[in-house]
């Protein structure tokens, strides 16, 4: 008898979103450590600012995206709302960072931002963990 069991059956999407945030924080931490070693404290703070901007945006977006519905259109509208909120939060936080932090190291900020943004997709591995039991 072959039974296919998907570990993410929709209801535990909360777990997937928390996994996404964990990946983003881990990537940000790695960039912070590299920036601290290579360029010093201001670069590390800049990398932290870039990574946190994406992570905070993704956190609030995941709160909106978790709203479940049986209507596909409602789900889609919620997801697009979540994405819009995420982009607005990221842009506002980046604007504040560039305006307020005078000793900013721009390349470290971009590195933290890029790492956090790209590693959000790493939680796909959590979704695709399909176990086959024979």
């Amino acid at each position: 008898m072959t039974e296919e069991r998907n570990s993410t059956s929709g209801l535990d999407s909360n777990e997937v979103f928390s996994k996404m945030l964990q990946w983003q924080l881990s990537a940000t931490l790695a960039v912070i450590i590299i920036a601290l070693i290579v360029s010093g404290m201001h670069a590390a703070i800049s990398a932290l600012a870039g990574g946190l901007a994406v992570t905070v945006g993704a956190y609030f977006a995941s709160k909106i995206a978790q709203r479940s519905s049986k209507e596909a259109a409602t789900v889609l509208v919620n997801l697009l709302k979540a994405e819009a909120v995420k982009i607005v939060i990221i842009v506002v936080l980046l604007f504040i960072t560039f305006k307020v932090y005078r000793q900013l190291v721009p390349f470290a900020l971009i590195a933290g931002l890029a790492a956090a943004a790209l590693f959000s997709g790493a939680a796909m591995s959590k979704l695709d963990r399909t176990e086959l039991e024979i």
Binding site: M20, K86, G121
Partner: peptide, 17 residues
């Protein structure tokens, strides 16, 4: 739909990256 919801959200993040 519930399974696709999580995947769509993660892919939205990747596309927007």
């Amino acid at each position: 739909i519930p399974q696709l919801q999580g995947k769509v959200f993660l892919l939205l993040g990747l596309i927007d990256a």
